[in-house]
Design a protein around this nucleic acid. Structure first.
Length: 943
DNA sequence: TCATGGTGCAA
DNA sequence: TATTGCACCATGA
């Protein structure tokens, strides 16, 4: 069994306490007067375990907020535990930091004790064929010991002892480890304030167990006892059983054992040592290095002798050495003897460039490259408002240059101008991370970026859309290298945040070129991964061309009628004030209506409007719209609150907020599209979000009147796909009935209603159509009977019947959905019409809730994602045609199935057919796509 | 100051 | 116990 995988689970608090008390006679105090005993004690144990055992899987488990279940059962549980010593309280955050730096997972679950977490994980790991070692001094864990679960118990005076079944049998005098629970229940535990049986200590408990085997059996046979003991035991049966319950480690904590999460990996040596340094742990640091540093590193004695080395910039101010870079500068990937993959950045060469001569030399080199990575440094985050501070360039791993710019914007333009041949080169590929940002910054200086692009953020988004795509994280994942964080340079955001301008140019160089260098190296990884994910074509033909389209749309912005919004705001304020007065009168008190907490108390405690109010997951009263709207017809105050809320929402989120988003330079609103956020392939919009402007209510819809054409020569044109998602599901499922309905141009919801309610099309009632519409949408999302009945007036039973009839009407649709789920199970992912993938790691989860969500995703993602694919294709084609024809009209917004244009009046009749044609023919399917267009003096009219 | 929960807007 | 998002407000560490 030598190759059986081993999991080590550390009981954090138990080890921390133990460490602390080990030093109690001469506590460790560092030069700042801080008691570091607990931290040192714990960290020693941790390193010890790693060094001795070299576990392949390891985690540290913490308590959080005590055990809800036990405290509920017995309020006195752990009540007489003395207050946590100061040294231990301050230790925990440090220990968390250390674990983070060492890449060791910390497991916590509010309301559960570490015992329960460890127990649950150990049992789960056992099922996966692991041997688990519970690292803890706490003997209570003995109850969990089995053939594959052991206690790994630190011995006083050093060393460890492993408790398996024989050891437990011997120590507790039991046959089976589970009997340890009876043992503990009988003798109690003063530390945890578990009462136990009065008068029963270790000896008696052992005796009882030997004789009766369990507490229950003891109680059945009390007639065999005698004297005082008989009386006592008989009188305290309830107490005994409660004690047994308290001593039982729970095995149903909602934690998952995903092997990969618990895998030991290389610590961030640099970060770990920094923390140890701060705490002044010298011996520990040595110990740590011996444990982790690969042998060749520890003998080489570089500056920090760690696998991740950050050296100062080589010759960053000697601009005349520009191309005399030492040939040693390189980044190598190697398998160290410890088996950890590390990147050793031995001697990178990053150079600052700030003279005309060096810039000329750099440009000459740039123009010789087939492909170059660049990254801009700026004064802020809003690409269209910031100034350029520097640009880093790199084309060879471990090497790069940083061109800095002065504050004078005229000079900046002049310097930048020299690089025009590079940026405008059609043949040099431009690599970057979130290139849209850099291209927008350069556009502030009228510097276009041409040629093929390679965006590592988008590449990774296609490789795995569910993950995060920060460069820092990607670097750590793919290069095992932790880059200098921007926070290290300029601090956390807030009023104390520095501008990049005041960072020494040497540090700017280091930071900026490193980012560019990393991005360049990521490209190599991603080129391969795009291929293995079969998304290279999607990347090259859709996502990368889209970067330029979105850039243009964002730069364009949209015009806003602020005067109109001001009036709207005043009108809303009036109504809000009136409603607020009414609400306070009806409630008989004043309170903050916007506070769900206060509102809940007023409605459900003070006014007692409902018998059993619905609660949220945190135990507050729910005051959500779908809850309150049931009550609105019986209680005027509820109706008023809902109206109040609606107006407040409109005012704060739209009417008052939008004018603040106007760019002072252009006078227009420039949203930012996120191309790598939505897991399905959709875009998202922010700062401001222009994809959720109200339309459903009359009052909300008014906000759309504020979006107006550029000037009197333009109108707004809105073009939207009609029912694109239903058309896609019809086409993909090859459901003839539905396809025919679309081909015949029928109203799909009415058509569905006619079929499921079995009435002629012309006799479909409003209600029937509405219910059919809800089901049509629900199908796309994977609705349940419960969900449908919540959304409609139908009962659960009626909802179920409706869904059943729906599937009978469209049998192939149901088959298609099942196919998607099967595909996901087999392949671990689903894909869209353009082979965009979404991985569904939970599709085979044992947890039915988690699995259900993954199953719904396997149906929904291809539909939502295919719709996203199609409109992206249309956008690219429209943009290209507009460019080619040099139209004054511009595409401004995308709202998932809708495109909005500033249409020049003279071009209107030319562009209308172009837009319609490109949208409807973007992707051919068995179902025709239909686009509706409208024109108006504002966005509302354009619909 | 920041993270989180509750709420609500869109497709 | 319906998919994907973003933003506002209140709240408490």
């Amino acid at each position: 069994m030598a190759d059986q995988k081993r999991l080590f689970l550390l009981d954090a608090y138990a080890l921390i306490f133990r460490g602390y008390y080990a030093f109690i006679k001469n506590p460790r105090i560092n030069s700042k007067g801080m008691d570091t005993s607990a931290i040192l004690g714990f960290t020693n144990s941790l390193l010890d375990v790693i060094k001795r055992e070299r576990p392949d899987h390891l985690a540290v488990c913490f308590d959080k907020g005590g055990s809800v279940a036990r405290t509920e059962a017995f309020p006195e549980y752990k009540a007489n535990r003395q207050e946590t010593p100061e040294a231990i309280r301050i230790a925990v955050p440090y220990i968390e930091k250390i674990l983070q730096a060492m890449n060791i997972p910390a497991v916590v679950k509010a309301g559960y004790e570490a015992d329960d977490i460890i127990g649950t994980l150990a049992k789960k790991a056992e099922k996966e064929g692991y041997k688990t070692f519970m690292v803890t001094p706490d003997k209570d864990f003995a109850q969990l010991v089995s053939e594959n679960i052991f206690m790994y118990r630190p011995r006083f005076g050093g060393g460890y002892e492993t408790w398996g079944i024989p050891e437990v049998q011997e120590k507790f005098g039991v046959e089976r480890p589970e009997q340890v629970i009876d043992f503990l229940g009988m003798m109690g535990d003063s530390v945890d304030n578990i009462p136990g049986l009065p008068g029963v200590g270790e000896k008696t408990a052992k005796k009882f167990l030997a004789a009766y085997g369990s507490m229950e059996n003891l109680f059945k046979n009390t007639h065999e006892l005698k004297g005082k003991m008989k009386e006592k035991v008989e009188a305290s049966q309830e107490l005994g059983l409660l004690s047994k319950d308290l001593a039982t480690i729970m095995l149903d904590v909602p934690v998952e054992f995903h092997q990969e999460d618990f895998e030991m990996c290389m610590p961030d040596i640099h970060a770990t040592k920094e923390i140890f340094n701060e705490l002044e742990f010298r011996r520990l640091t040595d110990n740590f290095e011996k444990t982790f540093a690969p042998p060749e590193e520890s003998t080489q004695k570089t500056e920090t002798s760690a696998p991740v080395v950050k050296k100062p910039v080589a010759k960053s101010d000697g601009q005349f050495d520009l191309f005399a870079a030492p040939g040693t500068g390189n980044v190598t990937e190697e398998e160290s003897s410890s088996g950890f993959k590390t990147i050793t950045n031995t001697n990178h060469f990053y150079q600052h460039v700030n003279t005309p001569l060096s810039r000329a030399l750099l440009l000459k080199k740039l123009l010789q490259q087939p492909s170059v990575c660049f990254d801009t440094e700026t004064t802020g985050l809003k690409a269209l408002e910031v100034e350029l501070i520097g640009i880093a360039f790199s084309w060879e791993a471990g090497k790069g240059y940083y061109v800095s710019f002065p504050e004078d914007q005229g000079e900046t333009r002049t310097i930048l101008e020299a690089f025009r041949p590079f940026f405008e080169s059609e043949t040099i590929e431009k690599i970057g991370h979130n290139l849209k940002y850099d291209i927008k910054v350069l556009s502030n200086y009228d510097m276009p970026v041409k040629g093929k692009l390679f965006d590592t953020m988008i590449a990774h988004y296609l490789i795995n859309p569910d993950m995060r795509h920060n460069m820092d994280i990607l670097s750590e994942t793919y290069l095992n290298y932790q880059p200098v964080s921007i926070t290290e340079l300029i601090g956390k955001k807030g009023k104390n945040q520095l501008s990049m301008r005041v960072v020494p140019v040497k540090d700017q160089t280091e930071y900026a070129v490193e980012d560019s260098d990393i991005t360049l190296q990521l490209k190599e990884h991603f080129t391969k991964e795009l291929d293995s994910g079969n998304v290279t074509k999607l990347f090259n033909d859709v996502e990368l061309p889209l970067v330029s389209v979105l850039t243009a749309m964002e730069i364009e912005g949209i015009n806003l009628n602020t005067d109109f919004l001001k009036e709207l705001s005043v009108a809303l304020s009036d109504d809000i004030a009136r409603l607020e007065k009414n609400i306070f009168e009806q409630a008989g008190e004043e309170f903050n209506i916007a506070s769900p907490k206060q509102l809940g108390i007023v409605l459900f405690e003070n006014m007692k409007l409902v018998e059993k109010p619905k609660k949220t997951k945190t135990g507050q009263y729910s005051t959500a719209e779908d809850v309150l709207s049931y009550l609105a017809k019986d209680h005027q105050i509820i109706a008023d609150i809902l109206e109040y809320r609606q107006y407040k929402k409109l005012q704060s989120t739209y009417v008052d907020a939008l004018p603040n988003e106007i760019n002072p330079k252009t006078g227009r609103v420039h949203t930012v599209y996120a191309q790598a956020v939505a897991a399905t392939g959709r875009l998202s919009s922010n700062n401001p979000n222009l994809q959720n402007i109200p339309i459903r209510t009359e009052r909300g819809r008014q906000v759309r009147k504020a979006f107006i054409p550029r000037d009197e020569n333009h109108v707004l044109l809105a073009a939207d796909y009609s029912q694109i998602e239903l058309r896609i599901i019809a086409a993909l499922s090859e459901e003839e009935t539905m396809i025919e309905a679309f081909k015949n141009g029928e109203d799909i919801h009415a058509s569905t209603a006619a079929k499921v309610f079995n009435v002629p099309l012309e006799e479909v009632t409003r209600e029937q159509r509405s219910n059919a519409k809800t089901v049509n949408f629900g199908i796309i999302y994977g609705v349940s009977a419960f969900g449908l009945s919540n959304q409609t007036d139908l009962s659960r039973k009626e909802a179920k019947a409706l869904i059943d009839t729906y599937y009978e009407t469209y049998p192939k649709l149901r088959a298609y959905m099942a196919e998607q789920v099967d595909f996901a199970r087999d392949h671990g992912y689903v894909e869209t019409v353009l082979q965009r993938r979404r991985y569904l790691k939970d599709i085979n989860s044992r947890n039915a809730i988690v699995r259900g969500a993954a199953e719904r995703n396997s149906v929904n993602a291809p539909i939502q994602g295919s719709a996203a694919d199609i409109i992206k294709l249309a956008m690219i084609n429209i943009h290209n045609r507009f460019e080619k024809e040099n139209f004054k009209s511009k595409m401004l917004l995308q709202v998932h199935d809708e495109l909005v244009f500033d249409a020049h009046k003279d071009e209107l009749e030319t562009i209308k057919p172009i837009i319609k044609e490109e949208m409807e023919n973007a992707y051919k399917m068995a179902v025709p796509l239909d686009v509706e267009m409208g024109i108006g003096e504002n966005w509302l009219e354009a619909h």
